[in-house]
Amino acid sequence: MKQLFTTLGPMTKDQLGMILPHEHVFVDLRTPDQPGYAEADAGAVVALMAPQIEAIKAQGITALVECSTGGVGLRVDLDLAVSKATNFPIVVPTGNYREPWIPEWVSKASEAELEAAMLRDLNDGVGDTGVRAAWIKISAGDDGITPIEARILRAAARAGKATGAVIGSHTIKGRVVMDQLDIIEAEGYTASRFISIHTQAEPDFEMHKVVAGRGAWVEYDNLGWVPDEESVPRILRALEAGLGGQLLLSHDMGWFDPALPGGGVPKPYTHLVESVLPKLRAAGVDEATIVRLTHDNPFAAFAR
């Protein structure tokens, strides 16, 4: 039976409802060599972010996927603190971001060492938190995959193949996604266990179809950042093109930023439910499709 590994333990599909597949509780976009990188008091993080979680709980959201990975402030201990304070499951990744946000140990590690680190996070838990990573989050440069990014990707493909974990990548250009899928398949894993994060940033909609045609998940995760007049027609176009079974919707919102006083001002995770879903319904999208987009697809993507 497939399970979704969360900060509150593994969960089955019948224990969950709506899931937000791309959000952030804590992020540090400074590079890892900067003073104070990824440092924060757990109480301060809980005080800022717990109200954001309570707001989506009231909407019927049952879990959230944390997309901060190595290099951009992955702090599973802080995710766990927020999760326990709100009794709300958070899904965390392993993996590493792209250059120049790559920690020194990652830049020096072999593919085998990177694979072993990911497998520990996926199988045993991240650090001493006891929380198992559910998935692998990586990235690639806008103009192509660098040698270090390719090394991380090959390690991710091997760890994914060993565990069934999905690999999600912050990749802006569709042609770079295709190169990533080539590497994943060359390692013996499958494109169907890949999420093309930020697919909406690729302006050529035909490329969305090509990526989905390879079997990958496509993710539109800028809801609330752009007007609904832009995002809703894009979702409808994807549904009309038959991509509904591979489409993920989220905000890419949050988050506590340790580089800002008090963690900054978080952006809420509420726009999908309060604005986008009503407009999809008004456009004729039926409830079965809404459930598929908000319940079924996120679970299928991240469970293993």
Rank of each mutant, 00 (worst) to 15 (best):
K2F: 15
Q3W: 14
G9D: 01
M11Y: 12
T12S: 15
T12H: 15
Q15I: 04
Q15S: 10
L16P: 09
H24Y: 05
F26C: 01
F26R: 03
D28F: 02
R30C: 05
Q34T: 13
Y37N: 04
A47N: 12
M49W: 07
E54Y: 13
A55N: 08
Q59R: 09
G60N: 01
V65H: 02
T69E: 03
G71D: 00
L74D: 11
D77G: 07
D79W: 13
S83A: 06
A85E: 05
I90R: 04
V91P: 08
V91L: 03
V92I: 08
V92A: 05
T94I: 06
N96R: 14
Y97H: 10
Y97S: 04
P103Y: 03
L114K: 06
L122M: 06
D124C: 10
R132K: 11
G141D: 02
D143H: 15
I145N: 01
I145E: 02
T146I: 08
E149G: 05
E149R: 06
I152K: 13
L153P: 11
A155E: 07
R158Y: 08
G164I: 03
G168F: 06
H170S: 06
K173L: 12
V177P: 11
V177F: 08
D179R: 12
I184L: 08
A186K: 13
G188I: 09
Y189N: 09
T190E: 15
T190D: 15
I197N: 15
T199S: 11
D204P: 13
E206Q: 14
E206P: 14
H208I: 01
K209R: 14
K209V: 12
V211H: 04
A212W: 07
G213Q: 03
G215W: 03
A216I: 06
W217C: 02
E219I: 07
D221A: 00
D221I: 00
G224V: 03
E229R: 13
E230S: 15
E230C: 15
P233Q: 00
P233W: 00
I235H: 04
G242I: 03
G245N: 07
L247P: 09
S250L: 01
M253H: 15
W255I: 11
D257A: 12
P258K: 00
P258W: 00
A259H: 12
V265F: 14
V265N: 14
P268S: 03
Y269F: 13
T270N: 06
T270L: 03
L272G: 07
E274T: 14
L277D: 08
P278V: 01
A282C: 10
V285T: 04
V285K: 01
V291S: 13
V291M: 13
L293R: 00
T294P: 07
D296Y: 09
N297T: 01
N297E: 02
R304A: 13
